[in-house]
Design a protein around this nucleic acid. Structure first.
Lengths: 170, 170
DNA sequence: TAGCAATGTCAACAAGGCTGACATAAAACG
DNA sequence: CGTTTTATGTCAGCCTTGTTGACATTGCTA
């Protein structure tokens, strides 16, 4: 089924993986997979009264120690008001530390505290466990394909940010 | 970089694609790609005063003509109150029709109206265009890997639903 | 007939997006 | 030096979309 003639030829070729049915499967796979992707951290966060937004902030602060608020805003793609609400609770709860910049004193540099690192580990372990299992069962070739497709799916601006992040892996 | 000894061996093997760094890349790729994945439909929906929840309902009603409310609830994984709010506006706006079941009169079967089909096409075209471009540039092998990894990332229950959906493609 | 299932609805609440407006401090510029 | 821009924070209010709990209706089923 869904293996019919396809009829989605381009330049005369028959590209079975580009039929409407295949695209729909890909779209639905993204929907269902993203749910699984976030489900484990979501459970942990809920126990502590945090949400997905807190996770994202924690993740990227961990990823880029000492990043500025502005940089984080650009990565997350939300408004400063949204981010600030989240950041304020994380700072109050002493998971994140905000240090005034030395070169430019207008900037605030963000760091995870020891307490913040503990939660980051916990969230990261849960999410990585699932991704690791998925990667392992799928195999290296599939993982490469997975990454290639995802990268091609990003907006150019996002792809730039993504690649910049993965380049200078600390 | 990140091509070091890896040190994440399992059973003595060196599984480079399972290093923490590789997992982190995969996780961040999901984050950025999902944003791109939803961005085009989101723009269209906003123009019409709808949200992502409306899109999901429209998508799965189109996908499974005549599905019941209960079935839709199971697929979407939200509460009936959440779904009902969305469904009500779609029915009021005459994008969706709700017909009392013939066999079981308690059930409501959901259908897209002509007007609903128009919006579905528009949303679907926008989303498929991006996915198609990504698939095309990545190639069939990458697409297969993409799907394999996503499927492995789903919760078992979601995977069951996903597979059931793709089986009986109408 | 009693009980369960499918649906709808009301109320209230929370997270996390958004906009707009305003304040402050520091850098940058002319 | 004075002006403007930048980085950040904050207040207020709005929207969508998720949640829980309670309750009503209808109709299937044992």
């Amino acid at each position: 089924m869904a293996q019919g003639p396809g009829g989605n030829g381009q330049h005369g070729e028959t590209l079975l993986f580009l039929t409407d049915e295949q695209l729909r499967k890909g779209i639905e796979a993204m929907f269902f997979a993203y749910k699984g992707f976030t489900s484990d951290p979501d459970r942990i966060l809920e126990e502590r009264g945090y949400g997905r937004a807190h996770h994202r902030a924690i993740h990227f602060i961990h990823r880029s120690h000492g990043t500025t608020v502005n940089n984080l805003l650009a990565i997350l793609g939300v408004t400063k008001q949204s981010l600030n609400r989240v950041l304020r609770t994380l700072i109050e709860d002493e998971l994140v530390e905000s240090r005034v910049g030395t070169r430019d004193k207008r900037e605030r540099h963000l760091f995870l505290t020891d307490k913040g690192l503990v939660l980051e580990r916990e969230l990261s372990d849960a999410q990585q466990a699932r991704v690791r299992d998925a990667f392992r069962s799928a195999g290296p070739g599939a993982v490469a394909g997975f990454r290639t497709v995802l990268e091609a799916m990003m907006d150019p601006e996002m792809r730039r940010r993504y690649q910049r992040l993965t380049e200078n892996s600390r």
